[in-house]
């Protein structure tokens, strides 16, 4: 099939709202777009384990520790579902890891911020997973079949992530003055980066034209961000937290909140490698990848020796 025929068959399926499956004809740019998006999504899940992993040994109770371990294990699982999904498009796991470690592939900017106190674990679950859920629910309707299926599985698991985070915040807000201050401080530090997770405003969004034409994306960055804000403001009020945005106010006409200016300069600075933890995140990933090499080599050697085991 030549490129024009591929394009015609493909766009026809898209218009009919049918899913594209790995063996279906697809334009090279659709494939490349998905590989970029899905592998970066996978890297985000994996790198996202680091700020939380930092608190496993310091969780304030056995219950909290079990929950945090289970949550982080889920994130590792999400990374694996997504790597497999990207592999159906013809990129290998080795290539993806190399792209991550050489900086060619990015991961979500949010994980370049540190988890400073236990309240940060609450804020991450509530706000960061909360924002991720809004994104991922929308992606359940994405046009690439394996990606949509991975999103269903992930969304089923995510709701506990957000609830455990909100529970931490709610408990801290019922605690001492210091604990309440700690919760508010975490809220202040995570709110804006969480809003940035939805990406640039629609008017400045570079890749979105194709993503809509190909139905990879169905809702714009600003629509998703709005959804997240509208849900979260009420949740903050219930437990007595203040949203750190003096310009936030209810807009009766649009039946949603207006929010203040997002600091995109900071976003650019962090995504270009100058956030508080970029270097640390990558060093950690490379270090454990390299320290684990002997395990993979031994497993491969064993299989070579006993192929039928």
């Amino acid at each position: 099939m030549d490129a024009t025929a591929v394009q015609a068959v493909f766009q026809d399926k898209i218009e009919q709202d049918l899913k594209i499956e790995p063996k279906d004809p697809m334009p090279d740019r659709y494939r490349a777009h998905l590989i970029r998006q899905i592998s970066q999504h996978a890297h985000s899940e994996v790198i996202g384990m680091q700020p939380e992993g930092n608190w496993i040994t310091r969780a304030p109770s056995l219950r909290a520790k079990q929950i945090l371990l289970a949550k982080i294990q889920d994130e590792g699982g999400h990374g694996l579902y997504l790597y497999s999904t990207a592999e159906t498009l013809g990129i290998s796991r080795e290539e993806m890891i190399e792209q991550l470690q050489t900086g060619k592939a990015k991961y979500s900017n949010i994980f370049n911020y540190p988890a400073l106190t236990w309240a940060d674990i609450g804020a991450i679950g509530w706000l960061v997973d909360g924002a991720a859920i809004v994104n991922q629910v929308a992606l359940q309707r994405t046009s690439y079949g394996p990606y949509a299926r991975a999103m269903f599985r992930i969304c089923k698991e995510e709701s506990f992530h957000q609830r455990q985070g909100y529970e931490i915040m709610a408990n801290m807000m019922k605690g001492t003055t210091e604990q309440r201050e700690m919760a508010q401080d975490a809220m202040n530090r995570w709110w804006w980066p969480a809003l940035m997770m939805f990406g640039p405003h629609d008017k400045d969004s570079a890749h979105s034209g194709d993503a809509f034409k190909w139905r990879i994306k169905r809702k714009t960055n600003d629509e998703l961000r709005q959804k997240f804000i509208d849900k979260t403001v009420q949740q903050a009020e219930v437990i007595g937290l203040t949203i750190p945005d003096p310009d936030l106010k209810w807009n009766e006409t649009k039946q949603g909140y207006d929010h203040g200016e997002i600091n995109w300069e900071e976003f650019k600075r962090v995504i270009n490698g100058n956030g508080p933890c970029n270097k640390q995140r990558m060093e950690h990933h490379i270090r454990y990848h390299e320290e684990g090499a002997w395990v993979r080599e031994a497993a491969a050697a064993y299989h070579e020796k006993f192929p039928t085991d």
């Binding site: 294990q73 694996l80 497999s84 991975a150 497993a299 064993y302 299989h303 085991d309």
Partner: peptide, 23 residues
């Protein structure tokens, strides 16, 4: 359900258990 990476069937089964049946 999906796929996993493994060197042999035992590891594949264990990884599948961990990745796809945690609930």
């Amino acid at each position: 359900a999906g796929s996993v990476h493994a060197s042999d069937y035992k590891m594949a089964l264990q990884n599948a258990r961990d990745v796809y049946t945690r609930r």
